[in-house]
Design a protein around this nucleic acid. Structure first.
Length: 418
RNA sequence: GUGGGUAUGGCUCAGUUGGUUAGAGCGCUAGGUUGUGGCCCUGGAGACCGUGGGUUCGAGUCCCACUACUCACCCCA
């Protein structure tokens, strides 16, 4: 127990951390090209922020939050997603008075949900994401989607499926709810248990049900009930995506589980043989900022699951190879040579060559074995003979070729071969 | 929250109808080559057999409970 990470958490070990750094760099590089700057918000917020922002009726808020009272009696919640905190910061820092839109991103931000862990689902997980406040045109919807696709592409995942939908605004959604409920009513007895519960609370979510999917193919779609404004926005989004050359499918079943979404919603999905997995999800949230007490400000963003992204990389066989740990490994024989070796390693490092020597006081043979296991490109050998001759033995480990190089030239030579 | 599966060295797994010192491969480590990696050979370290009860002369093996891990559902990244 003591030496076991808490349920649903995992360590990123030294041998794997390069993979996180790579997908983080992909996000940073893409975001910079699109004019997004990083925001970092706290890992925890006042519980009320999520109740108001994410929505009291959502599963995330009702069943999955890590909520506790701090020593001052405040109710605190570990953030279950990234948008509410960013919206809070937008309001608190009066960013609405800055030139808009305010475009921001975050990288490997931790999020917490109390759920039973399974493949691709953890209690502490990490998201890359972006938020844009104060841009109402559908070009920004398309930009946010393009950015997400770009990040995934930079991670080696070019062929993921993009599905989009519109869930309308509070006005047209209310009318649609009535229409949908009327259509569902005769079917109600035949639907699964959870769908029965959803009927009153959030009928839209019934369309998301996998169990009853075949009975619902003819259900009225939100898309057909959009008000003029919402419909025009969706049409523009489609035209924008077409113009950008981004392929997509319209999926009327995408609903999303967070209350703040309006109009555009989208998911980027992998269809693996074992089942599909949503790697990225997002949408527009035009009511969120005002709901939290800020000025009427529209918004849009996405969240991208880093652990899922890494899983999909593995499944697709595009896991990047680990970078080389050492360019040169220095092997020494004897105390005097060891001291010279330490000097050589220092010199190499100062020149930008990744270098190390044996710190375990092992035999020469064991030093070579170690260098091999660490994947060192070159091994430099130093013993009394070499010191007397003023040389270093340079071995190319892959070619198994060994030559003597003057000690004074070795650092420059190594540097030139990087 | 609901349902299934699993639990034996660091890893992957054997372990017969309960029977005496719990094995293998890989990995780690040392040596064979007193100055040289990968291949080969030899040795070494490393296991309270998930935890706690029970049955039995005797339990890794049978029974019960618990815990952990894992997969799926719900939900979502």
């Amino acid at each position: 127990m003591l030496t076991q990470a808490p349920k649903g958490t995992q360590d990123v070990l030294p041998r794997d951390s390069y993979r996180w750094q790579a997908v983080e760099q992909a996000m940073r590089d893409a975001a910079a090209l699109y004019g997004y700057r990083e925001i970092r918000t706290p890992m925890f917020e006042h519980t009320e922020l999520f109740q108001r922002g994410v929505g009291d009726t959502t599963d995330v808020v009702q069943k999955e939050m890590y909520t506790f009272n701090d020593k001052g009696g405040r109710s605190i919640t570990l953030k279950p997603e990234g948008t509410a905190g960013a919206a809070r910061a937008f309001i608190e820092a009066h960013m609405f008075a800055d030139p808009l839109p305010a475009k921001m991103y975050y990288v490997s931000a931790p999020a917490f949900r109390y759920e039973r862990p399974q493949a691709g689902r953890l209690r502490q997980f990490h998201q890359h994401g972006v938020e844009v406040f104060g841009a109402k045109d559908a070009t920004v919807d398309a930009e946010v989607i393009a950015l997400a696709m770009d990040v995934l592409k930079r991670c080696g995942l070019g062929g993921l499926r993009l599905a989009i939908n519109s869930i309308g605004c509070p006005n047209c959604r209310a009318a649609y709810h009535d229409k949908l409920k009327a259509w569902l009513k005769p079917l109600l007895p035949s639907l699964c248990k959870t769908c029965g519960e959803r009927y009153e609370r959030n009928p839209l979510r019934i369309l998301d049900c996998k169990e009853d999917a075949d009975k619902l193919t003819d259900a009225p779609a939100m898309l057909d009930s959009l008000c003029d404004d919402c419909k025009a926005h969706f049409d523009k989004l489609r035209a924008n995506l077409d113009a950008m050359g981004i392929a997509y499918t319209v999926d009327p079943r995408i609903v999303r589980g967070l209350d703040y979404y309006t109009k555009t919603v989208f998911e980027i999905i992998t269809d693996a043989p074992e089942g599909s997995l949503t790697v990225c999800g997002g949408g527009r949230y035009d009511g969120l900022v005002s709901e939290l007490g800020g000025p009427e400000t529209c918004g849009i963003g996405f969240g991208m699951g880093v652990e899922r992204l890494l899983m999909v990389q593995d499944a697709a066989g595009v896991t990047p190879p680990a970078p080389r740990l050492y360019d040169a490994f220095v092997c020494t024989l004897g105390d005097k040579a060891r001291l010279e070796g330490l000097k050589l390693v220092t010199e190499l490092r100062q020149s930008g060559v990744k270098a190390d020597l044996d710190h375990a006081a092992r035999s020469l043979k064991a030093q070579f074995k170690y260098a091999d296991k660490m994947g060192a490109q070159y091994v430099l050998t130093l013993a009394d003979d070499e010191i007397a001759k003023g040389v270093v033995k340079l071995r190319d480990m892959e070619k198994s070729e060994e030559t003597e190089i003057p000690r004074s030239e070795i650092t420059d030579l190594m540097k030139s071969r990087l």
